[in-house]
Design a protein around this nucleic acid. Structure first.
Lengths: 247, 247
DNA sequence: AGGTCACGTTGACATGGATCAAGCGCGGGA
DNA sequence: TCCCGCGCTTGATCCATGTCAACGTGACCT
């Protein structure tokens, strides 16, 4: 069992190939397009691909020719150093875009791996550039998506560069909670798709430390954890931990 | 004295307002444009701005409306957490682009500060979008620049998430060396424009640690340091430290 | 020329998180 | 239903880096 606990979930069964009828259009690339523009986008995105848990969407070094919009499921992206160590650089869920690392060199520079059975829409990159010359709001929105990725990365640098283990994990949980909320799932109860080791890699910690901090948070009544099932009990205090007003 | 030690430097005194005659055109936004296209770009970039050491190009929260191409000088970018801690996210030198963090939200999300007297070309963002609809290679190159920024950020995550202090500083020095080389300066001898504290913030280390590792490298004959003046003696061994073949 | 101050170095000590090691629990397969 | 193995938890110990403190040094101001 790895589906999230749905409160008012996006109706996945009603998704169709076309962006114009996709339940994710408010989260994904089509944000802000008019109906007419959306119709044009349907010609851009025609192919879907499924990935079983553990399989790669792409690998570092492979030629780049498309971006991938996550339709459902969960992915991690990892970079590998010259000496073989790897580092998780992010986790992607429905409506998020994979593959932007490849534009700069025409080769992918990281691996994208499905953490559960998942599906993506394939966005041929050349067509995206063509079409964004025509549709100004597509162009602008695509730029925004890339820019937000840069801003997200800055947040991770802050996390890795100047936060302590507890703050990192709190930030991670708060971030997941927000993203699940935006997708119509519970803000306080969800299944982690990644292992402790993957969380640790992302947060610059060892898996034992991740496990210990989970236990500590549980002991303090902030969350309850049982393997991959997490329930957040006290979001305001988690937010305080990372220096945000409870809000 | 803070100018780099020039071997065959880009002739700064010959730079003009126009991209078409700018000595940085092989490093900056115009890469790959034809002469005719370059001429059009001259209408995009018409304004230059100077910044004294310590002044801001922009601050987090300010409205975003332009990108800035570094003409000469040196900048740092920093993000500030809710609780006031800040984190250096990068250092920028001639030919590099500042401000892409602002596209996503129409507000800047970090501060950009001159580390020495510097100058930038102002690229009004709306005009850049317009013009990149017309000039395909400008569009593509701009996408590449953003993508490379994402890839660079992944490298920093790797550094912060899974390297030890010595590896981080070695990677930092090798990276600076490469960038100076690309600009026609000595690969092995340069002045650091940033303090130990800024290096430390960027690398997720305290300034004392940075200082100690510099001293250690010096003791091992890898480099010689005297305040901000660094001479790299053994690049191959520095590369080995970060797991790269000496190359 | 001398004073001042920001920046850098170095030492002694503290500690958060890593490492090493043992055992547990749950899901999947036969 | 039982077994197996991966992933998780927890404890004991270690060590890289942080912290605190003192001092050095070069640049700039007057």
């Amino acid at each position: 069992m790895s589906a999230p606990i749905a409160l008012h979930p996006v109706p996945i069964d009603k998704l169709r190939v076309a962006c114009s009828t996709c339940g994710l259009r408010e989260l994904c690339l089509p944000i802000g397009l008019s109906d007419e523009e959306l119709g044009k986008l349907d010609h851009l995105v025609t192919l879907r691909r499924s990935f079983r848990k553990g399989t790669n969407v792409y690998r570092a070094g492979e030629p780049f020719d498309a971006l991938y919009a996550v339709r459902f499921g969960f992915f991690k992206t990892t970079v590998t150093a010259a000496d073989g160590r790897d580092q998780v650089t992010g986790f992607s869920m429905a409506g998020e875009l994979l593959g932007m690392d490849g534009i700069g060199t025409d080769k992918h520079t990281c691996d994208a791996v499905a953490l559960e059975d998942s599906e993506v829409c394939v966005i041929p990159y050349g067509r995206l550039e063509e079409m964004s010359r025509e549709l100004h709001s597509l162009q602008h929105h695509f730029h925004k998506v890339m820019s937000r990725e840069i801003v997200r990365d800055h947040g991770v640098m802050m996390l890795l560069g100047s936060m302590r283990a507890e703050e990192r994990l709190a930030a991670f949980l708060v971030n997941l909670s927000q993203r699940f909320t935006a997708r119509g799932y519970s803000p306080s109860e969800f299944y982690l798709r990644m292992t402790r080791e993957e969380i640790g890699s992302y947060l610059g910690l060892k898996l034992e430390t991740v496990s210990r901090v989970f236990s500590k948070f549980q002991g303090e009544g902030l969350i309850s954890v049982q393997q991959k099932h997490v329930r957040i009990i006290d979001i305001p205090r988690l937010r305080e931990l990372i220096g945000q007003r409870p809000c």
